[in-house]
Design a protein around this nucleic acid. Structure first.
Ligand SMILES: [Mn+2]
Ligand SMILES: [Mn+2]
Ligand SMILES: [Zn+2]
Ligand SMILES: [Zn+2]
Lengths: 156, 156
DNA sequence: TCGACAATGCAACCGTGTTGCATTGGGTCT
DNA sequence: AGACCCAATGCAACACGGTTGCATTGTCGA
């Protein structure tokens, strides 16, 4: 039985014109399960189970490249300068509202607020993206003590 | 002659409680001259002249850390995952309006538009920063040919 | 002027991401 | 099913940004 519009990982790969390999299936599945964008390192961890051993480092990078090229995944830099990947369709479900990122625990929370209207640009300028980064400390992390003058404001 | 509120690099270092060393003076000066945020590599280039040889790589990183810690410089990740630094007071002059970043040439342009109002947060959440990232292609880069289906959309 | 302690230089290291190349394996055609 | 082609994989080596440890130098206050 074969549906022409298959929304399973396999069908999505076929639709995108990508070969359906074990690695791509597992990575795409992991991205769709994930509740936040995952880094390469995250994916190596989540793909290494008792059952399967993880992909080769380089292969994972190339799998991610192919998913991005095929429009099945999105790639963005996080606050530490590391690329994070998310399933494209998962991203669509978070298009109509803003998000808050906790700088302490890294958690991402959906807000009940609309994205800002696109700004007016000078003549000849072409707008491609408007990203609003709302960040701070979430309720749980705010309770767990903020030792007056936060000594541990280290990055990377 | 010594003013208590000295806005020169030397005075700013003193006010911030940082030792006034040649490296810090030159780096802070370079950041204040700069018209865009500079990366570590940018600074190595701009600090290496016929007159002076550049600081040691590691020292430059530590100088930048100290300026950030002292509140004299700001640190942010660019689209390629590289840290860029700007003088804090230079940044203040760009607080009342938005900016547009060209993803092609990297240029930053001031927009005649106000920052968005801070969003409402769930109870217990503490807002620390709201960053609006407006990006696309500037007028000059848009002219210089976009070969229909942009083959060169490579990152990093 | 002297001494304490911060800042520097140098070497070694780490994590992320890339490139080259030989080998494997998916998809397709017969 | 079998054969073929080229994309996908694994492995080694590399590039680059950024960090750590430690001995030496220099700032600044006593
Ligand atoms: Mn959401
Ligand atoms: Mn401006
Ligand atoms: Zn949190
Ligand atoms: Zn441009």
């Amino acid at each position: 039985m074969e549906r022409s519009h298959d929304s399973s990982p396999g069908g999505q790969l076929r639709t995108a014109g990508l070969k359906r390999t074990p690695g791509r299936l597992r990575v795409l599945g992991a991205l769709q399960e994930a509740r936040q964008p995952l880094s390469h390192a995250d994916l190596e961890r989540v793909l290494t189970t008792d059952a399967h051993q993880g992909l080769d480092r380089v292969t994972l990078y190339r799998v991610l490249d192919s998913l991005v090229a095929g429009g099945l995944a999105l790639k963005a830099v996080d606050a530490h300068g590391v690329y994070r990947y998310s399933a494209a369709d998962a991203r669509q479900r978070h298009e109509g509202h803003l998000h808050f990122r906790c700088v302490d625990c890294g958690g991402v929370f959906c807000l009940d607020e609309l994205p800002p209207p696109p700004p007016k640009l000078p003549n000849g300028f072409r707008l491609e993206a408007v990203g609003l980064d709302v960040s701070g400390v979430c309720a749980k992390c705010d309770l767990k003590g903020h030792p007056k003058s936060d000594e541990d404001s280290s990055d990377r």
